[in-house]
Design a protein around this nucleic acid. Structure first.
Length: 263
DNA sequence: ACTGGCGCCTGTTTGC
DNA sequence: TGCAAACAGGCGCCAG
């Protein structure tokens, strides 16, 4: 599930559960989720420490456990962070952290695409990964500037994490629905005012998604396309069937009548 | 610089 | 009903 709104929710879950609580146990049920760290390395870093601060950039969540030491979480396609108590952990909880107060955090990921890393600092990690500015925090001017130097399709741009960090397949589709633009719209055909509309729609969609608890089916169905993608597959504005097309390697949903390709 | 295809993984849905 | 294929809210790598 995990795009920017999910990462917002998971950062809150992490902070609400863990801050200032001593780590009493670290369990790695499948080390494939670890990138650049070992079971022992993760345990040695965290055991007896406490997280003091959390941050988010795009789809990544960070938690500081020491001076110059941060845990970095990425959720892949099926990852999620769950707080629980007791010995019974969720089924696909491949990485688990237990705290002295009995609270526990589980990184679940049935498809095992989530990744756990130890990094020096969030900013250094973002630079090393060449991530673009966070989609919710970038200024209008910065976004317009980036669009000016870009070719290809608008959906390809919105999905590119080095262009803007945070949007994934479904929220990119929703942003383009909100601005009545076909996902294959060439970026060079967009002017600064078009990009302003995209910028404002991006904030509108992301804010609404966060308010909906990062559940796309919980967005207001009268105004947003995503609830219909999982329901009647019809455009909420005109009732026409939504179409799909493969754009930048992902399935795009759009309304062929409302979303124009040119002009 | 950007696109398309593949692989990574596995659970769920779809189609014969 | 049974089984295989397709698909999936991501991303890194490759070739063109």
């Amino acid at each position: 599930m995990p795009e920017l709104p999910d990462a917002v929710v998971y950062r809150r879950t992490f902070a609400d559960t863990s801050l200032d609580q001593t780590v009493a146990g670290v369990t790695v049920a499948d080390p494939i989720l670890l990138d650049g760290a070992s079971r022992e390395g993760l345990e040695d870093a965290l055991l007896g420490r406490a997280f003091s601060e959390t941050r988010r950039h795009g789809k990544h969540v960070f938690a500081r456990y020491a001076e110059g030491g941060w845990l970095a979480l990425h959720f892949g396609m099926t990852g999620r962070l769950t707080a629980y108590e007791g010995e019974d952990h969720p089924e696909y909880a491949y990485v688990r952290i237990a705290f002295e107060n009995g609270r526990r955090l589980a990184l679940e990921c049935p498809r095992k695409f989530a990744r756990v890393r130890l990094v020096d600092a969030p900013g250094a990690f973002v630079d090393a990964k060449a991530l673009g500015p966070d989609a919710r925090r970038a200024s209008l001017e910065a976004v317009q500037d980036r669009f000016r130097g870009r070719r290809g399709t608008v959906k390809g741009a919105l999905l590119d994490q080095s262009f803007l960090a945070g949007l994934g397949n479904i929220y990119a589709d929703e942003v383009l629905y909100q601005v009545s633009r076909h996902p294959r719209t060439p970026v060079p055909s967009l002017d600064d005012e078009d990009v302003r509309a995209i910028y404002e729609a991006m904030h509108d969609v992301l804010d609404a998604a966060v308010a909906a608890g990062a559940d796309p089916t919980a967005l207001p169905a009268g105004r947003f396309m995503l609830p219909h993608r999982y329901d009647d597959e019809r455009c909420p504005a005109d009732g026409r069937p939504l179409e799909t097309d493969s754009v930048s390697g992902r399935t795009a949903y759009f309304c062929p009548a409302c979303q124009r390709l040119e002009g």
